[in-house]
Amino acid sequence: MSRIKIPRKSTAIDMTAMCDVAFLLLTFFILTAKLRQEDPLQVDTPAATTKVLFPDIDVATLTVGKGKIFFGVEGTDVRQELLDAMGKKYNQTFTPDEKKKFSTIPSFGVPMAQLKQFINLREEDRKKFVQPGIPVDTTNTSELFNWIHEARVADATLRNKSLRIAIKGDSRQEYPEVKKVIDILQKQAINKFSLITSLKDSK
Protein backbone atom coordinates (compact mmCIF):
# COMPACT_ATOMS: atom_id res chain seq x y z
CA MET A 1 0.00 0.00 0.00
CA SER A 2 1.26 3.32 -0.90
CA ARG A 3 0.85 6.19 1.38
CA ILE A 4 -1.15 9.15 0.26
CA LYS A 5 0.96 12.16 0.56
CA ILE A 6 -0.75 15.13 2.08
CA PRO A 7 0.75 18.29 0.75
CA ARG A 8 2.06 20.46 3.53
CA LYS A 9 0.35 23.74 3.84
CA SER A 10 1.75 26.77 5.49
CA THR A 11 0.22 27.38 8.91
CA ALA A 12 0.49 31.14 8.59
CA ILE A 13 -2.91 32.77 8.18
CA ASP A 14 -3.52 36.21 6.88
CA MET A 15 -4.14 38.20 10.02
CA THR A 16 -4.88 41.53 8.37
CA ALA A 17 -8.64 41.30 8.49
CA MET A 18 -8.65 40.02 12.04
CA CYS A 19 -6.34 42.81 13.08
CA ASP A 20 -8.66 45.35 11.45
CA VAL A 21 -11.67 44.02 13.32
CA ALA A 22 -9.82 43.89 16.60
CA PHE A 23 -8.71 47.48 16.38
CA LEU A 24 -12.11 48.64 15.24
CA LEU A 25 -13.67 47.08 18.33
CA LEU A 26 -10.89 48.48 20.47
CA THR A 27 -11.51 52.00 19.19
CA PHE A 28 -15.22 51.61 19.84
CA PHE A 29 -14.68 50.50 23.41
CA ILE A 30 -12.17 53.23 24.15
CA LEU A 31 -14.47 55.91 22.84
CA THR A 32 -17.55 54.71 24.68
CA ALA A 33 -15.74 53.79 27.86
CA LYS A 34 -16.47 55.35 31.16
CA LEU A 35 -14.45 53.76 33.88
CA ARG A 36 -16.47 51.93 36.44
CA GLN A 37 -16.36 53.54 39.81
CA GLU A 38 -16.77 51.55 42.92
CA ASP A 39 -19.79 52.63 44.88
CA PRO A 40 -19.14 52.61 48.60
CA LEU A 41 -22.77 51.71 49.15
CA GLN A 42 -24.00 48.94 46.89
CA VAL A 43 -27.57 49.52 45.85
CA ASP A 44 -29.91 47.58 43.65
CA THR A 45 -31.81 50.17 41.66
CA PRO A 46 -35.44 49.39 40.86
CA ALA A 47 -36.43 48.77 37.27
CA ALA A 48 -38.63 51.11 35.27
CA THR A 49 -39.44 51.65 31.63
CA THR A 50 -37.96 55.14 31.28
CA LYS A 51 -35.31 55.36 28.63
CA VAL A 52 -33.87 58.76 29.53
CA LEU A 53 -30.14 58.41 29.99
CA PHE A 54 -28.67 59.61 33.21
CA PRO A 55 -26.32 62.54 32.57
CA ASP A 56 -22.80 62.37 33.91
CA ILE A 57 -22.03 66.04 34.29
CA ASP A 58 -23.43 68.68 36.65
CA VAL A 59 -25.20 66.14 38.76
CA ALA A 60 -25.22 65.26 42.43
CA THR A 61 -26.23 61.76 43.47
CA LEU A 62 -27.87 60.87 46.75
CA THR A 63 -27.53 57.18 47.38
CA VAL A 64 -30.06 55.77 49.80
CA GLY A 65 -29.80 52.21 51.01
CA LYS A 66 -29.60 50.16 54.19
CA GLY A 67 -30.89 53.18 56.09
CA LYS A 68 -27.84 55.25 55.19
CA ILE A 69 -27.46 58.23 52.93
CA PHE A 70 -24.37 58.83 50.81
CA PHE A 71 -23.60 61.94 48.82
CA GLY A 72 -21.52 62.49 45.72
CA VAL A 73 -21.14 65.18 43.11
CA GLU A 74 -19.56 65.00 39.66
CA GLY A 75 -16.54 67.06 38.72
CA THR A 76 -13.25 67.37 40.60
CA ASP A 77 -13.31 71.17 40.57
CA VAL A 78 -16.81 71.24 42.04
CA ARG A 79 -15.74 68.83 44.77
CA GLN A 80 -12.80 71.02 45.78
CA GLU A 81 -14.95 74.13 45.88
CA LEU A 82 -17.58 72.23 47.86
CA LEU A 83 -15.12 71.02 50.48
CA ASP A 84 -13.83 74.55 50.88
CA ALA A 85 -17.34 75.89 51.46
CA MET A 86 -18.27 73.10 53.85
CA GLY A 87 -15.03 73.63 55.79
CA LYS A 88 -15.90 77.27 56.29
CA LYS A 89 -19.37 76.39 57.48
CA TYR A 90 -18.18 73.84 60.03
CA ASN A 91 -15.00 75.71 61.07
CA GLN A 92 -12.60 73.21 59.58
CA THR A 93 -9.65 73.99 57.39
CA PHE A 94 -8.51 71.62 54.71
CA THR A 95 -5.05 71.64 53.16
CA PRO A 96 -4.68 71.70 49.35
CA ASP A 97 -3.55 68.09 49.56
CA GLU A 98 -6.70 67.08 51.40
CA LYS A 99 -8.83 68.90 48.88
CA LYS A 100 -7.09 67.06 46.08
CA LYS A 101 -7.70 63.73 47.78
CA PHE A 102 -11.33 64.63 48.40
CA SER A 103 -11.82 65.48 44.73
CA THR A 104 -11.10 61.86 43.81
CA ILE A 105 -13.81 60.42 46.06
CA PRO A 106 -16.95 59.84 43.97
CA SER A 107 -19.32 59.26 46.86
CA PHE A 108 -19.03 59.26 50.63
CA GLY A 109 -21.12 58.93 53.75
CA VAL A 110 -19.29 60.29 56.78
CA PRO A 111 -20.31 63.07 59.14
CA MET A 112 -18.28 66.28 59.11
CA ALA A 113 -16.53 65.33 62.35
CA GLN A 114 -15.03 62.24 60.71
CA LEU A 115 -14.43 63.72 57.28
CA LYS A 116 -10.83 64.83 57.81
CA GLN A 117 -9.85 61.44 59.13
CA PHE A 118 -11.66 59.74 56.25
CA ILE A 119 -9.93 61.84 53.59
CA ASN A 120 -6.51 61.10 55.00
CA LEU A 121 -6.99 57.35 54.85
CA ARG A 122 -5.24 55.48 52.08
CA GLU A 123 -7.44 54.37 49.25
CA GLU A 124 -7.43 50.71 50.27
CA ASP A 125 -8.32 51.59 53.84
CA ARG A 126 -11.06 53.91 52.66
CA LYS A 127 -12.88 50.95 51.09
CA LYS A 128 -12.72 49.02 54.34
CA PHE A 129 -13.83 51.98 56.44
CA VAL A 130 -17.42 51.52 57.60
CA GLN A 131 -19.14 54.74 56.64
CA PRO A 132 -22.11 55.55 58.86
CA GLY A 133 -23.88 57.75 56.29
CA ILE A 134 -24.47 61.48 56.32
CA PRO A 135 -26.50 62.68 59.32
CA VAL A 136 -30.00 63.80 58.42
CA ASP A 137 -32.75 65.41 60.38
CA THR A 138 -35.74 67.48 59.48
CA THR A 139 -34.23 70.86 60.32
CA ASN A 140 -32.65 73.21 57.86
CA THR A 141 -29.24 72.79 59.44
CA SER A 142 -28.62 69.10 58.94
CA GLU A 143 -25.37 68.14 57.26
CA LEU A 144 -27.05 66.66 54.22
CA PHE A 145 -29.00 69.87 53.70
CA ASN A 146 -25.76 71.84 53.74
CA TRP A 147 -23.92 69.45 51.46
CA ILE A 148 -26.65 69.71 48.85
CA HIS A 149 -26.92 73.43 49.23
CA GLU A 150 -23.18 74.09 49.01
CA ALA A 151 -22.85 71.73 46.06
CA ARG A 152 -25.46 73.71 44.20
CA VAL A 153 -23.67 76.97 45.01
CA ALA A 154 -20.30 75.52 43.94
CA ASP A 155 -21.66 74.20 40.68
CA ALA A 156 -23.42 77.46 39.92
CA THR A 157 -20.28 79.56 40.52
CA LEU A 158 -17.93 77.30 38.59
CA ARG A 159 -20.05 76.17 35.67
CA ASN A 160 -22.90 78.65 35.76
CA LYS A 161 -25.40 75.82 35.55
CA SER A 162 -28.00 74.51 37.89
CA LEU A 163 -27.04 71.25 39.51
CA ARG A 164 -29.28 68.31 38.84
CA ILE A 165 -30.13 66.12 41.78
CA ALA A 166 -30.60 62.40 41.44
CA ILE A 167 -31.75 59.89 44.01
CA LYS A 168 -30.34 56.42 43.74
CA GLY A 169 -32.33 54.27 46.07
CA ASP A 170 -32.18 50.63 46.90
CA SER A 171 -35.21 48.56 45.88
CA ARG A 172 -35.69 47.19 49.37
CA GLN A 173 -35.26 50.53 51.07
CA GLU A 174 -38.34 51.50 53.01
CA TYR A 175 -40.07 54.65 51.90
CA PRO A 176 -39.68 56.89 55.02
CA GLU A 177 -35.92 57.12 54.48
CA VAL A 178 -36.41 58.26 50.90
CA LYS A 179 -39.09 60.63 52.08
CA LYS A 180 -36.57 62.34 54.37
CA VAL A 181 -34.32 63.04 51.41
CA ILE A 182 -37.20 64.31 49.30
CA ASP A 183 -38.29 66.60 52.14
CA ILE A 184 -34.81 68.10 52.34
CA LEU A 185 -34.78 68.71 48.62
CA GLN A 186 -38.19 70.33 48.73
CA LYS A 187 -37.08 72.62 51.51
CA GLN A 188 -34.46 74.00 49.15
CA ALA A 189 -37.13 74.46 46.50
CA ILE A 190 -35.71 71.66 44.37
CA ASN A 191 -38.91 70.44 42.83
CA LYS A 192 -37.47 68.60 39.91
CA PHE A 193 -35.14 65.71 40.44
CA SER A 194 -34.41 62.34 38.94
CA LEU A 195 -34.78 58.85 40.30
CA ILE A 196 -32.14 56.51 39.00
CA THR A 197 -33.55 53.28 37.65
CA SER A 198 -32.35 50.36 35.63
CA LEU A 199 -34.02 49.47 32.39
CA LYS A 200 -36.96 47.12 32.28
CA ASP A 201 -38.74 45.96 29.16
CA SER A 202 -42.28 47.17 29.08
CA LYS A 203 -44.49 44.18 29.50
Binding site: T45, A48, V52, L53, P55, K192, F193, L195, I196, S198
Partner: peptide, 10 residues
Protein backbone atom coordinates in the same frame (compact mmCIF):
# COMPACT_ATOMS: atom_id res chain seq x y z
CA UNK B 1 -25.55 49.35 31.15
CA UNK B 2 -25.79 53.04 31.82
CA UNK B 3 -28.28 53.94 34.51
CA UNK B 4 -31.51 55.54 33.44
CA UNK B 5 -33.12 58.51 35.08
CA UNK B 6 -36.77 59.06 35.79
CA UNK B 7 -37.51 62.77 36.07
CA UNK B 8 -40.05 63.68 38.68
CA UNK B 9 -41.73 66.99 39.35
CA UNK B 10 -42.98 67.94 42.77
Amino acid sequence: AKPKAMDTFW
